[in-house]
Amino acid sequence: MVECKRWLTISRNFFFCLLDDANILGCKTMNLSNLRPGRHGRILSVGGHGAVRRRLLDMGMTPKTEFYVRKVAPFGDPIEIHLRGYALTIRREDADNIVVAEVK
């Protein structure tokens, strides 16, 4: 059920991404955790539930927000991203729930 819902969001986001004027056909949707350091992205949707999801939204990871991945910690986790003029660190497992489009 949850998995199904997730796929629904992902496919829906892909569809919206196609419609997005700035990225007509040029964009790739992926999970934030797959975006490599140095790359810029735009948030499409924040999945997950409960406290973690709410905290992500509260910290400014709302749809359409642009950000970039600064670096990954030793052992590859967590990751550091910059958005809204500040730096935030999140775990890879939480980043897995955030669907983004890469911005060139």
Partner: peptide, 8 residues
């Protein structure tokens, strides 16, 4: 334990 932390 959730871990969503600002790096000031």
């Amino acid at each position: 334990t959730p871990f969503i932390l600002e790096l000031p």
